[in-house]
Every structure is written in C-alpha cells, then in structure tokens.
Design a protein around this nucleic acid. Structure first.
Length: 483
RNA sequence: GGUCCCAUCGUCUAGUGGCCUAGGACAUCACCCUCUCAAGGUGGAGGCACGGGUUCGAAUCCCGUUGGGACUGCCA
C-alpha cells in the first residue's frame, strides 16, 4: 500500500460538529479518489470527559454520513508513550529546555515588551527539571518556517513572531502540537487536511518535526503536505460556534436530513463540481474532487440551501425508499434508530402502515425534510382533528357560505361514489351553486377534515380517509362552529 | 497590538489575461400551472470592495488601502 495516508483527528465534544464533518468528508474524498488510506484518530488527551460515549458518537455520525475509515479508530491516549519518548529525544538534543516561570512572573516581566509572549527567560538557565517545570521549544530567533499548503501555496511565518512555546506541561503531559505531529509520524501521514484555524500552529509542528528528524535516536520521517480548509462561518462571518450556532450533525439527522444530501451540501462548501449541476452523486464527488480546487475563503453554512438540497434528494427517492426512510419519524417503534426529542403525534395503534403507504406519494414532493412528515399527515391517524383556530374561524366559524357548503357536502358525500375524481367534481359544482370557485369551496372541507389550510391534495385524502370518517368530521366541524 | 489567511450577486460558487454585455445554484420578486401547499415552467432584479500599476487587453498578475477572519493558553 503506497497511496496517500490521511487522517481525521477530531477531539470528542459530545456531538459531531458540522465543521468536523466537512473536514472528515474532504479527507475521505481525497483518500477515496487517490486510492489512499483514511484513518480515524480520536484526540482524547486532556479530558476527563465521558470518553466512551463520545467516541461512539463520532463513529456513529461518520457511519451515518457514509465516511468509512480504513484504519482505526485509534485513540491518541494509546500513544502517550511515544509522545513522551519524542519529547525526551527533543530535550536530550537541546531542542527543548526546562522552564519554571509561572504565568504571573512572565506577565510581570513582559509588561513593557514590544514582542508579546514568553521572553525566553529560562533559555540558558539550565533549570533542573522537576514537577514544577515545563518544557519549552527553543524557537530560532531569526529566519522563517515555510508551510507548503496544497490549497494556499507556500505560507511563510517569521520565527520571531513565535514565543518559546510549551511542549510538555509541568505535569508531564505532552501538548497537542507535538502529540499530534508524533502521531502523524508514527502513522506515516502524508497529507494533513484540516481547518484553517490550525494554520498558525503548523510552523510549530513543522519545526518540531524537523527537530525530531535531527535527533539521532529518532527515525527520520518525511514532512507531510498540508491543506488548510477554509472555515465554516455563521451569518456574522465568525467561525461556527458550538454554543451559539446549530452545529450538531446529529440534530440535522433528527430533523430528517438525508445523509447523502448532507454530504452533497457539505461538499459544496468551499468546493464545487464541474458543470452547472450541484446535485451530484457521491461517486461524482469522489471522481471530481481536487484539493487544489478548494476555495480560499470562508463559507457560510446556509441551512436554507441545505434544506433545498435535501428536498431534491427526498423527491429523488423511490416511493419504497421514501417510506423506509420515513420510518423513524412515523413509526419509530419499528426502527433501531429514532430521532431524539421527537414525539410522534399518534400511537402505534392509531398508525397504519398500509394507509401511510398510500399517503406517502402525496407528501413526498411536499416536504424538504423527513421531520415535516408527521405534521402533514397527522389527520390520517389521529381520532380528533386538531384545528388551527385562525383557519377554522376564517373558513367556517366566520363564514356563513363556508358552513353552507359544508352542509351541502354532508348531503352530497352521503351518496356520491367514493373516489377522488368524483369528490373533486362534486365539490366543484357544490361551490358553483354557492358562487365559489373551487379554491374557495375546498377550504372549509379541508379545514373540517384536516384542521388546517394547507396539506396534501384534499380529494385524494378524503378518498383514503373514507366516507364515514369524512362525514363525521364535516358534521363535527359544523357543530363546533355553532357551539 | 503582533503573525498569518481571505476578498465575484444577500448566500454558496464558476471564472486561472482576450470566449465576460461575468455563468450556475439557494434565497427573493413576477407570471404560468393549480383543489390548498409544494413541486415544476418562464422571466426579472442582484456581484468582480477601493486606488494605483503591469499589459494592446484585466474579475483574472503586482503593490497599496479598506474591510472581514483565524491564531496569539502549562486547550485541542
């Protein structure tokens, strides 16, 4: 196996961030397209968090999105020994030095300094290591480090803009920049594809990588290539915040976004397929994706467009697929996975799979997310119609002609052949007799039967509902208006 | 403050010196279709941040300005 080796290295946070999903996707696309290897490595250091559960969350979310990895999942904590060994090698070769300064001492000393950050106070002090000393990297005073970025080209960072940063905490814990680089070395990562927010720390990693290659006891490893993806931002053009912005992939799944649609939309953020079509298959994505084509500027995560893309995918489903995909929202008791925080407005006893199968084609082209389905078909399964009061008042309670039409419908529907086209015709001429266009005359019936002003096609719905239920609801609505 | 990144319709983007009177998609507006709502169809409005260069010719190259963002922790 000689292809590229890429890794997705999320830190567990309790949910899967859309930015992480995009990073993961781009890594995956690159690996799949180049015949490379996609590795999942969970960066679980510095955490007393509930790891097991959160690891499972990341893995479940990736599985849902169809981002399968070839190696892993690895946990960064498994490699603690390597991190320490590398740090010791760097120290032994003079790249690291011990420092016993406290934050307060440093702040006090650097108050008037032109250059912010640590002042290198302990560089030549040869402080004895203890549980109060941290290890800092000796950053060269002059020169620059160049990051070779596949998206942005070469980016040059002057060394004097970096302080002697801490590599090993006084507790002995090896910090992210080194731990991450060491893991990349042991996994022989060839391409580091990650968010642009990591660009400024890259020179640190490049410097340490280079230093490691100069340690005689360490096996040299070629530097990886980097690719820093543009940030995903909110409407304020700020990096997506997990506190303020809706960033949990799981919540999109709960709302009824399809994995393929989500992936398709994510791919459109910072990249675009050839031609005018934006709705493209996963294999097209894999085929056409090029890291070098990735945009340089941040992208706004636009839920409205996501929703549109999702609608396209829903409508493209076969009716059987649509029914199957709807299951978690309409009959969760039959499914292994069910959307969180979502109540189904009917009981298992009230629901009918046969009826839903007949209703499904009517709603498939009317929803943009699967989560919208229950509210659109609830009247088929609920015993009591739940009325939208504004609509009820407008079309029935405050409309004498509407009530007149209802009375006429009750009579007519008693005997008419129970078929959508016939009901359609009957309503047409009943309305004409009262001087109403069909768009007017269908309104009170719709409200009486469904409780709402909008919904699936009325006459097909009546046909499916049956004569008895329809007549009962028409009478009840009239009674309700008189009450 | 320092370092770095970025800059095409409101949004996501195409565009890599002439094919641009700048293309597509979402959103928006109008009309058509229509039993409601969608979907669909047609059409409209809407953009190269600004200023200098380079060039016969710049959305495309260079510089500056302005604006936005990221980073700047004994977090990752």
């Amino acid at each position: 196996m000689t292809g590229p080796r890429v890794r997705f290295a999320p830190s567990p946070t309790g949910f899967f961030h859309v930015g992480s999903a995009r990073t993961s996707l781009f890594n995956w696309l690159f690996a799949r397209q180049t015949g490379g290897t996609f590795i999942l490595r969970i960066e679980d250091t510095d955490t007393e968090r509930n790891r097991d559960e959160w690891h499972r969350g990341i893995i479940a979310a990736m599985a849902w999105l169809g981002l399968d990895f070839d190696e892993g999942p690895f946990l960064q904590s498994e490699f603690l020994f390597d991190h320490v060994a590398s740090a010791e090698a760097l120290f032994a070769n003079g790249f690291l030095y011990a420092c016993d300064c406290t934050r307060e001492q440093i702040d006090e000393r650097i108050k008037g300094n032109a250059k912010p950050g640590y002042d290198g106070h302990c560089r030549e002090r040869h402080v004895a290591r203890s549980d109060a000393t941290a290890l800092r990297f000796r950053v060269p005073d002059t020169g620059t480090t160049v990051v070779h970025d596949m998206i942005r080209g070469d980016v040059e960072f002057p060394h004097d803009s970096y302080e002697d940063f801490i590599v090993v905490k006084s507790s002995g814990a090896v910090l992210y920049p080194l731990a991450n680089a060491v893991d990349d070395r042991t996994m022989e990562i060839t391409h580091v594809i990650r968010g642009e927010d990591l660009l400024p720390t890259t020179p640190k990693q490049v410097m340490m990588w280079e230093a490691l290659n100069h340690c005689p006891e360490v096996t040299p490893v070629p530097h990886p290539l980097y690719a820093h993806l543009p940030m995903l931002v909110n409407e304020q053009r700020k990096k997506l915040s997990k506190r303020k912005d809706p960033v949990a992939v799981e919540s999109y799944r709960d709302q009824g976004y399809l994995a393929d649609a989500f992936v398709n939309y994510l791919a459109l953020l910072g990249w675009s397929p050839r031609g005018d079509d934006e709705i493209v298959t996963r294999s097209t994505l894999v085929e056409q994706f090029r890291l070098g084509d990735v945009s340089h500027s941040p992208a706004f995560f636009d839920v409205r467009k996501l929703t549109h893309v999702n609608g396209e995918y829903i409508r493209a489903l076969s009716i059987d697929e649509f029914i199957e995909q709807s299951a978690p929202w309409v009959r969760p008791w039959t499914t292994g996975w069910r959307p969180g925080d979502r109540e189904v407005p009917w009981t298992k006893e009230q629901f009918s799979e046969e009826l839903f199968a007949k209703v499904a084609p009517l709603v498939q082209e009317r929803v943009a997310t699967l989560g919208e389905i229950p509210a659109m078909v609830d009247f088929f399964f609920q015993d009591e119609v739940s009325f939208d009061e504004v609509t009820f008042d407008k079309t029935i309670a405050n409309d004498p002609v509407g009530r007149e039409l209802l009375r006429s419908a009750i009579t007519t529907f008693e005997t008419v052949q129970w078929q959508a086209s016939v009901l359609h015709e009957a309503t047409l001429w009943m309305g004409e007799a009262l001087g109403m266009a069909l768009r007017k005359s269908q309104a009170p019936i719709r409200c009486a039967v469904t409780g709402r002003s909008v919904g699936p096609p009325l006459f097909e719905s009546l046909e499916l509902l049956g004569r008895e239920v329809t007549l009962t609801r028409l009478r009840d609505a009239l009674a309700r208006a008189n009450a």
